[in-house]
């Protein structure tokens, strides 16, 4: 089967999942949740106000009509205005995406780079004291909550030592990258590197056990060359896929970092929305992040097949 047909089939398979996500979010907000009119009207609401708000939101209409409205909102990208700030939801996402990416892309690149290097080193000395120490260390490092890293890191490196700004953001990309994003990225790496190292180590060890490595050794190649050229190339296939598929998860993983360091990104906006019961933002974020996840998975799958000639499009 060729690529186009494969692509179409996968896109077609996405439709029921997407509909499911839409249905789940719809049921959650329009059926499980209480009447949002009471949230919006505030404490001193009279019945007319409530009826008026209900009419404006369209929740006085039958369920199926509400579902159609919701689907129309998703397709057109027009979720109306934020309930808290009156800012259009689409505008919020457009302006908050940039800061999130400035935080996430360096984090992703650094994490992958450091994790691959460390994983290669521990694989080369597998079973040794260094390997075991690093693996135990990574378990301990993973066990400390990101919250503790952020609280302590922000206090020690920003408030106490003054090496970094405590929080903030500017309009200048370079300034953001070199000043404001540095500490959050480093703290984020504290928790994200250890699991990656453990995962990549198993990928690399899987390859080291293969026959072609024995052949390469028998040919008399040096151990670094075997690791860097032969093994890494093959281990890169699951690693790349893994990085790509983890992208949307990273987006939400930055919730806490963005909140603590006052970075005006999507994660912080979602936390604010949950605090303020700002339903349009949460609904839009859930649906669009789900779409992004599905596409990232598809991309990872495609790349996996492109990199590994043994896997066919079927």
């Amino acid at each position: 089967m060729n690529l186009t047909a494969f692509l179409f089939r996968r896109l077609w398979q996405m439709v029921p999942t997407l509909l499911g996500v839409v249905l789940l979010v719809f049921l959650l907000f329009n059926w499980v949740g209480g009447d949002p009119a009471y949230v919006l009207a505030g404490k001193m609401a009279n019945p007319e106000d409530i009826a008026n708000i209900r009419h404006q939101l369209g929740i006085d209409r039958p369920m199926w009509e509400q579902l159609l409205i919701f689907i129309r909102q998703i397709v057109t990208g027009d979720f109306g205005n934020s309930w808290a700030t009156r800012e259009p939801v689409s505008e919020i996402f457009r302006t908050r995406l940039g800061p999130s990416l400035v935080l996430l892309i360096p984090m992703l690149l650094l994490e992958t780079l450091v994790a691959v290097v460390v994983a290669l080193i521990v694989s080369a000395v597998r079973g040794s004291v260094l390997d075991r120490t690093l693996m135990v260390t990574s378990t301990v490092v993973m066990s400390i909550s990101l919250l503790v890293y952020i609280i302590v890191g922000q206090y020690v490196f920003a408030s106490l030592l003054g090496w970094f700004p405590v929080k903030g953001w500017s309009d200048n990309l370079w300034r953001n990258l070199t000043t404001y994003a540095v500490l959050p990225v480093l703290l984020g790496l504290m928790v994200s590197i250890a699991p990656s190292v453990r995962l990549y180590r198993t990928f690399i060890l899987d390859e080291i056990g293969q026959d072609y490595v024995r052949t390469a050794r028998a040919k008399g190649l040096s151990e670094p060359r075997i690791l860097l050229v032969h093994v890494l190339r093959n281990a890169a296939i699951p690693i790349v896929t893994n990085v790509l598929m983890g992208l949307p998860v990273l987006l939400t993983g930055a919730f806490l970092l963005e909140r603590f360091f006052a970075i005006p990104g999507i994660g912080r906006e979602i936390i604010l929305a949950v605090e303020r019961s700002d339903f349009p933002i949460i609904k839009a974020a859930t649906v669009y992040v789900a779409v992004a996840t599905l596409f990232a998975n598809l991309l990872g799958d495609l790349l996996y097949r492109a990199l590994d000639p043994r896997v066919h499009f079927e």
């Binding site: 499911g20 979010v25 936390i271 949950v274 339903f279 949460i282 859930t286 789900a290």
Partner: peptide, 18 residues
Amino acid sequence: GVFTAIPYLLLVFAIAAV
């Protein structure tokens, strides 16, 4: 598929908000 399409923490936040 539906539950894994939404990142875990985001789903939890959405339910907590509702």
